[in-house]
Simulated scan of single mutants.
Amino acid sequence: MTDILTTARDRVLATGRGLDHDQLMQILDLPDDRIPDLLALAHEVRVRWCGEEIEMEGIVSIKTGGCPEDCHFCSQSGLFESPVRSAKLDIAQLVEQARQTRKTGATEFCIVAAVKGPDENLMSQVEQAVGEIYANVEGVDVAVSIGILTPAQVDRLKAVGVHRYNHNLETAASYFPQVVTTHTWEERRETMQLVRDAGIEVCCGGIIGMGESPEQRVEFALQLADLDPDEVPLNFLDPRPGTPFGHMDVMDGKDALRAVGMFRLAMPKTTLRFAGGRELTLGDLGVEQGMLGGINGVIVGNYLTTLGRPAEQDMDMVDRLRLPIKVLSRSV
């Protein structure tokens, strides 16, 4: 039987085609002593098909907490006894946050709101914020994440120059009912197809380590690959007190690294971004292994409800690993 990493080298590295279901399952079954080989190959794949540059992004919430949805991992839900309280930022604060994010070297700034989908007030605020950021902060692209959209809302975001839209599938379709019951996986998928059809870049990923099986982890990767996203934010569950998943164990670091390699070999041409939970799950050494194992994007600073590493620490890491940072080249 041909070694799976040899198969991956011939198929993914040489031709840019992702592995299939059975092959990805073999990746997750690799023994611990093969993880360095997996990550080395994943790094070769991402350099070959994505280039050497690392994309840095900052995120800020325009509306935190009080969400009516029941995503079991999220402390922003108003249905759980979690410590997050509702808060909002005004336009001037968003512009300043974008300016400070740009100073870290990031070229992407994402505006996020904890909602199922935007009402007219939120849409208008986002439109104004995007315009003000482009007018006042040079060298930054604006991304938005405000939930499930209608076709008309997608067109409005396109019109104000939104560069990329984030709405995560979160997990495999077969496992989604164990994670969320107040809306469907298909609703999320439909929004991202609308975004794709409008010509806005698609940012769509999720969280691993929420109790899904290895088979569902592979299912999730293939469903994302079918969507053909420009970016996949890869989060690891950081159990939040007061949420239904608050009791879960943190994912094993070796399994997390296998998953990083597996996602890269499923989507060789996609920006794969380290997001929430990487510090807790992998630690500093594991994060660096991931950066040399298929990852080519990082969220710098804090996340929506959890603390990340200081942005300067990530910038130092990227410099130490001699990874070039993507420079914004388009005019806005």
Score class of each variant (00 low, 15 high):
residue 2 T to E: 15
residue 5 L to N: 01
residue 5 L to K: 08
residue 8 A to E: 09
residue 20 D to C: 05
residue 20 D to I: 08
residue 23 Q to V: 07
residue 24 L to T: 15
residue 37 D to I: 09
residue 41 L to T: 03
residue 44 E to T: 04
residue 48 R to N: 03
residue 50 C to V: 15
residue 53 E to C: 09
residue 53 E to Q: 13
residue 55 E to G: 09
residue 55 E to M: 12
residue 56 M to A: 02
residue 56 M to I: 07
residue 58 G to T: 13
residue 64 T to C: 06
residue 64 T to Q: 13
residue 65 G to Y: 11
residue 65 G to H: 12
residue 70 D to S: 06
residue 71 C to W: 03
residue 83 P to F: 13
residue 83 P to V: 15
residue 84 V to D: 07
residue 85 R to A: 06
residue 89 L to M: 15
residue 90 D to L: 12
residue 91 I to V: 15
residue 92 A to E: 15
residue 94 L to A: 07
residue 95 V to K: 05
residue 97 Q to T: 08
residue 99 R to P: 01
residue 104 T to I: 09
residue 108 E to M: 15
residue 110 C to G: 02
residue 110 C to S: 06
residue 112 V to Y: 02
residue 112 V to C: 10
residue 115 V to C: 03
residue 115 V to S: 01
residue 122 L to H: 06
residue 123 M to W: 04
residue 126 V to C: 09
residue 126 V to Q: 03
residue 132 E to P: 11
residue 133 I to N: 02
residue 134 Y to R: 00
residue 134 Y to A: 00
residue 138 E to D: 08
residue 144 V to H: 05
residue 146 I to K: 02
residue 147 G to E: 11
residue 151 P to Q: 14
residue 160 V to H: 05
residue 160 V to N: 01
residue 163 H to N: 08
residue 164 R to T: 10
residue 166 N to P: 07
residue 175 Y to C: 08
residue 177 P to I: 14
residue 183 H to A: 00
residue 188 R to I: 06
residue 190 E to N: 10
residue 191 T to E: 14
residue 191 T to Q: 02
residue 194 L to G: 01
residue 196 R to T: 09
residue 200 I to E: 07
residue 201 E to D: 12
residue 203 C to T: 06
residue 209 G to I: 11
residue 211 G to N: 10
residue 217 R to Q: 05
residue 222 L to N: 01
residue 227 L to N: 03
residue 232 V to E: 03
residue 232 V to G: 00
residue 237 L to R: 00
residue 243 T to H: 02
residue 248 M to A: 00
residue 249 D to S: 07
residue 253 G to H: 08
residue 255 D to L: 15
residue 259 A to E: 15
residue 266 A to C: 05
residue 267 M to T: 05
residue 271 T to Y: 11
residue 272 L to Y: 10
residue 276 G to N: 02
residue 282 L to Q: 08
residue 283 G to W: 11
residue 290 G to A: 12
residue 290 G to D: 10
residue 296 N to D: 15
residue 297 G to M: 08
residue 298 V to T: 09
residue 303 Y to D: 13
residue 308 G to N: 04
residue 310 P to T: 08
residue 312 E to H: 11
residue 316 D to N: 09
residue 316 D to S: 06
residue 318 V to A: 12
residue 319 D to P: 05
residue 319 D to E: 15
residue 321 L to H: 12
residue 326 K to M: 10
residue 332 V to Y: 05
